[in-house]
Design a protein around this nucleic acid. Structure first.
Length: 305
DNA sequence: GTCCAGGAAAAGG
DNA sequence: CCTTTTCATGGA
């Protein structure tokens, strides 16, 4: 491990950008194990090629400041790779103005885009992580999902101490592909989820499934079809992954209970909206369903500030 | 003890 | 092909 001496990198975001809103999402679980927050800055370990880098991300008025704290082994173009990772993770490059203009015509979304102006759709750039997180989260409450993820990461992911903290990387597909169902049952994953996760790991290890191939299709609906063809990945999981990893702005996990509860609260309904009601409502969101969903999730949190 | 949770597969009609 | 049931476990 080598300490890294360099100037901070400023990564500008398109206007409007609000760090406090991104932080509201990043701090939503105290059980998060892949990064930690201290003094309003985010710290995490990032895999870059065969190496990994410890980074610090701090908010600015119009973007973020990234500092590389250390690197496990020297690698070329480290700054470029880290900058690309952070830009993608925090979605710094999306122009939100068309989204906000369009939501102005939707009574449900209009108050939200005003309240959370500058909030970015925080992503999960690693496809394996996005798939595992979505599969683990199927039909269980979010608190337990975070518990499962933490057990998974601490059991099978790399961890490195740095500056008095433990930093973890999400497990690799090749590591998980060697596991048995019983290994994951021990974490309290269900048998079916354990099978799904190991199968996904095998597909990613043998190259049958990859982020670059899905993106290379150039058609998110075809990517959705291919994802759904995999056992354990239904419409919700496919759209969740399209939304948070592949950056499909039209991805729409319509079966999401959080989404449904958010709409119920916004419209003060007695019951959760039906799928048909949601489809009708979402005609106002066409092209921006993923961002609309993310803002609705945000509305389920208590507004800090 | 009950109900529900950021669903999906399998069975049933 | 569409609808209903089963699976499964912690959290509130």
């Amino acid at each position: 491990m080598n300490l890294y001496e360099t100037e901070d990198m400023f990564l500008p975001a398109t206007h409007p950008f609000r760090w406090s809103e991104c932080m509201a999402y990043l701090t939503r679980s105290a059980d998060e194990c892949l990064f930690h927050i201290e003094d309003d800055k985010v710290y995490r370990l990032v895999r870059v090629a065969a190496s990994s880098a410890w980074i610090e991300v701090a908010g600015r008025e119009d973007g973020v400041m990234v500092r590389i704290l250390a690197v496990s082994s020297p690698i070329p173009d480290l700054e470029t790779s880290i900058a690309a990772f952070v830009r993608e993770w925090l979605d710094l490059d999306t122009n939100l103005h068309p989204f906000y203009r369009q939501m102005d015509g939707c009574p449900v979304m209009r108050p939200l885009v005003r309240a959370y102006e500058g909030l970015r759709l925080v992503g999960v750039p690693d496809l394996f992580e996005a798939l595992c997180w979505a599969i683990m989260g199927q039909q269980i409450n979010l608190a337990f999902a975070y518990t499962l993820k933490r057990r998974f990461v601490t059991s099978f992911g790399e961890s490195h101490a740095f500056g008095g903290r433990v930093y973890s990387l999400f497990p690799t597909p090749s590591r998980i592909a060697t596991l048995t169902v019983e290994d994951l049952l021990a974490l309290q994953c269900t048998r079916m989820k354990s099978e799904y996760i190991i199968d996904v790991a095998k597909r990613m290890t043998d190259g049958t499934l990859s982020k670059s191939a899905l993106l290379g299709l150039g058609d998110f609906r075809e990517a959705e079809r291919q994802l759904i063809s995999i056992r354990g990945i239904g419409p919700w999981t496919a759209n969740y992954v399209l939304m948070r990893c592949l950056r499909d702005k039209s991805a729409f996990p319509i079966a999401d209970v959080g989404l449904q509860n958010a709409v119920k609260a916004r419209l003060e309904l007695a019951e959760k909206p039906t799928i048909e009601e949601l489809k009708s409502l979402a005609t106002a969101w066409i092209g921006w369903e993923a961002y609309a969903t993310f803002y609705l999730w945000r509305s389920l949190q208590q507004t800090v500030s």
